[in-house]
Each structure stands twice: as structure tokens, then as C-alpha cells.
Amino acid sequence: MRTRPIGPYGTAVSVIGQGTWQLERADRRTAVRALNTGIDAGMTHIDTAESYGGGAVEQLVGEAVRHRRHEVFLASKVRAANASAHGTVAACDRSLRRVGTDHLDLYLLHWPGGHPLEETLAGLRALHRAGKILHYGVSNFHDRHLAELFARTGPDEIVCDQVLHHLGDCSAELRVAPACLARGIAVVGYSPFGLGSFPPSPRAAAVLDSVARTHGATRHQIALAFLVREPHSFAIPKTATPSRAEENAAAAEITLSDEDIARIAAVCPVPADDGTPSSASGRRP
């Protein structure tokens, strides 16, 4: 599994990790096995949140990593509604108990807007000083949210922005990714296979299948390889199927040619910049 630094601290993280949104809907034993299969294949970045299954997914993740916590780069998120200074600390403490660990490697504000950003940052900084979180960042922050964030944080403070990023919605590449790159901040793409429609079009399907044949890969693997092609980008696909976890992990070893990238970009274009502020899309809990 390829790794790359996440954020300004140089911590090496697998370019493809494991998302867990709605994992509580899967058979628990199979889901735990899928997570461990992913870890075995090198997908050691596991992302979860207090809102997933009302905390049930954090407990599931805790079960999966109980005997191998040291192998995992574990991320969770505080709900915007809980993200006051005190509420952020309290939410993190609850997450730590559910997972069964004394620290999180990464803690994110799940959405902007629940409480003043200064309050959330105060809570995140307190958790960092206490050693309960090693890094912190944000999720679903777009243009104006990033501008506000950058005005209130130091140059090496935030490590990533986690955003929707899939072949049917590459809008994060328009302004979010360049803004983050300028600050040395990673972009972690969630739902890399979309929100119910993959591939996004018949033309995209044809191109993905053609490129996949060239690499002896699947269309899902080619999509992941495309989404993590930039040196600051990561992806966190979710699966409850062990064989799919292995398939996702293997995508990290695929190197697309310039021609491959151009062909995929032609059928999955970044939208034109019309000058209006972008906003979070594909809202999830």
C-alpha cells in the first residue's frame, strides 16, 4: 500500500483508507472481517464519526481494531451540533470510550456552522494538548468556510479537509483542493463511488472499462486510482465485503498514464468555475 504524508506534520497515511458511514446496516461479523481484511491489505486509515449509527459504528470499529490499535490511523468526527468548546471535548471523550482507545490519530469537525468556529477550535486545541487527539481537521468545508478557517488557524494546524469526491462530482478539484494544497492540507475524499450511481454515465463506464482492461484491473480500482492521483489526495471507500476491501486496497498500486487520466477526465470533467461560492453537496449524517 502506498502512503503519503497527511498535512504538514509528515505523518504517513495509506492513500486509500476505509470509510464506515452506514456500516451499522451490514452484518456485524462480516463488517468487522472486512475492516480487518482492509487493514491486512494496508488500508490502515479508518474513518468514522460519532453520528454514524448513533455511535454504533465507532463501537464496531473498536471491535475490529481492539487487538491491533497500534497499526491503525484512526479518525473520528464531532457533530456540528456538539462542537462548542466544551461539547467538542465531551464528544471526543465519548468517542474514545466507544472505540476503546486513549487517543484518536485524527479528529474532525464534521460540518461547519453548528457553533462559532473559535469555540470548536478551542476544544480541538485542548484535546490536542491533552494528547487525546494527535491531529485535527475539518470535513465538508468549502470556499467561504475554508477562508474563515484559514483566518483563525496557524499554518501548520489543520491537516485535512474531508469532502465528497467521486467521478460524478469532482467539484472539490475546482477550488477546495487548490486552496488546501496552498496550505499543505490534505484532501480526503469520501464516497468515491458516488451516492448511488457508479459509474456516473455510460460514457464514463466505457472509458473506465477500457482503462481497466489495460491495467488488468476493475472499473472501481481505476476510479480510485484516478481520485488519488494528486500528491495531496486520499480516498476512503466503504465496504462491508472482505473481497471488495482487498480490491480497493490493490487500487493504490495502479499508476495511471497521462493518457489514462486525460481520457477519464474528459468523461468526468471538473465543472466550470462560474464564480459563485461552492457549497457542500451530497449531505450525509
Rank of each mutant, 00 (worst) to 15 (best):
R2H: 13
R2E: 13
T20K: 05
R25Y: 10
R25F: 10
A31R: 02
V32T: 04
N36W: 07
I39D: 04
Y52V: 06
Q59H: 14
V61S: 01
G62P: 04
R69K: 12
E71Q: 15
E71A: 13
A81D: 12
A81L: 08
A83H: 02
A83M: 07
A83C: 03
A85D: 14
G87P: 00
V89I: 15
G100N: 03
Y107M: 00
Y107A: 00
P112D: 09
L117E: 04
E118N: 11
E118A: 15
E119A: 04
E119H: 11
A126V: 11
L127W: 00
A130R: 12
I133G: 01
H135G: 10
H142G: 04
H142M: 10
H145Q: 13
P155L: 10
D156E: 14
E157F: 08
E157M: 05
Q162P: 03
H165E: 06
H166A: 07
G168Y: 02
C170T: 15
A172E: 02
E173N: 06
L174H: 07
L174K: 06
A182M: 08
I185R: 00
Y190L: 12
Y190G: 03
R203I: 07
A212C: 02
I222L: 10
A223V: 06
A225Q: 09
A225R: 05
F226M: 11
I236S: 05
T241V: 15
R244S: 06
R244A: 09
A245N: 05
E247G: 08
E247V: 01
A250F: 08
D260R: 00
I261T: 15
I261K: 06
I264V: 13
A265C: 08
P271R: 11
P271F: 11
S279C: 13
A280S: 14
A280H: 14
S281A: 15
R284Y: 15
P285Y: 10
